[in-house]
């Protein structure tokens, strides 16, 4: 049997579309194998590296992954920690021991001193159990409460584009706008600066999200931001 590949790199594929035939190829990302054939599982872009065929999704909600840096909102305070909404179908837990190393007498301390309900914070996912119980940590740098500023919501599939190659896009955004910007893998972005600058960055990010498929986007954004300065 001859092994064959039916798509090219950067092709847009839809769920159930045949990508390749034969056991020499391996499915990765949002691709799956059925018998000897490999199909796409979501709408996405094809990436072929050697024998590995990957489908990079173009749409979809955030699904938590271990070691992801996320921005969350505190939705509940429990006896020994917080429940955090991390913009995904599962709520996450942040235990008091994952926030500070100092001793805290739970009988005497109000946990809202650290994080109150509706506070935004930056944290890392440390563990996701089989039953989708998500655990967070926020100990040390760069984790912190995000005070003031603005939160904007973008599609989690576009986050890599907003960060850019080796952080090129985000570094440029920070430099040109003098804003403090924090990106969560879960599609939430926190921007803090003067109101005008915050608005400018938000517009730039929305533009990146809309035009993520175009090349030369970094230069375009550069012109857009420096023009308004």
């Amino acid at each position: 049997m001859s092994d064959k590949i039916f798509v090219k790199i950067k092709d847009v594929v839809i769920p159930g579309e045949l990508l390749a035939e034969g056991m020499t190829f391996l499915p990765a990302g949002r691709a799956f194998r059925k018998g000897a054939r490999i199909y796409a599982a979501t709408i996405g872009i094809v990436d072929v590296r050697g024998r590995v065929i990957r489908v990079v999704p173009l749409s979809g909600c955030y699904m938590p992954k271990k070691d992801d840096l996320v921005i969350g909102r505190v939705i509940n305070i429990s006896r020994s920690g917080w429940a955090v909404d991390i913009n995904c179908p599962y709520s996450a837990d942040l235990n008091i021991g994952e926030v500070t190393t100092e001793y805290i007498d739970l009988a005497k301390t109000e946990l809202s001193r650290y994080f109150d309900i509706d506070d935004y914070l930056l944290a890392r996912i440390t563990d996701i159990s089989e039953s989708k119980y998500v655990k967070l940590t926020a100990k040390g740098r760069p984790f912190r409460k995000l005070i003031g500023g603005n939160i904007i919501n973008v599609s989690p599939t576009k986050i890599p584009r907003i960060i850019g190659k080796e952080g090129s896009m985000i570094t440029m955004l920070k430099q040109l706008s003098d804003c403090d910007i924090v990106i969560g893998q879960n599609g939430l972005i926190w921007i803090k600066g003067t109101p005008q600058k915050e608005m400018m960055v938000a517009q730039a990010i929305k533009k990146i999200e809309r035009e993520s498929h175009l090349t030369g986007l970094t230069d375009k954004i550069k012109i857009m931001l420096s023009g308004k300065k």
Binding site: G16, K34, A41, T42, G60
Partner: peptide, 11 residues
Amino acid sequence: LADAGIEMRDL
């Protein structure tokens, strides 16, 4: 459903 990025075997 496909537009929502849901993982599907087929349409």
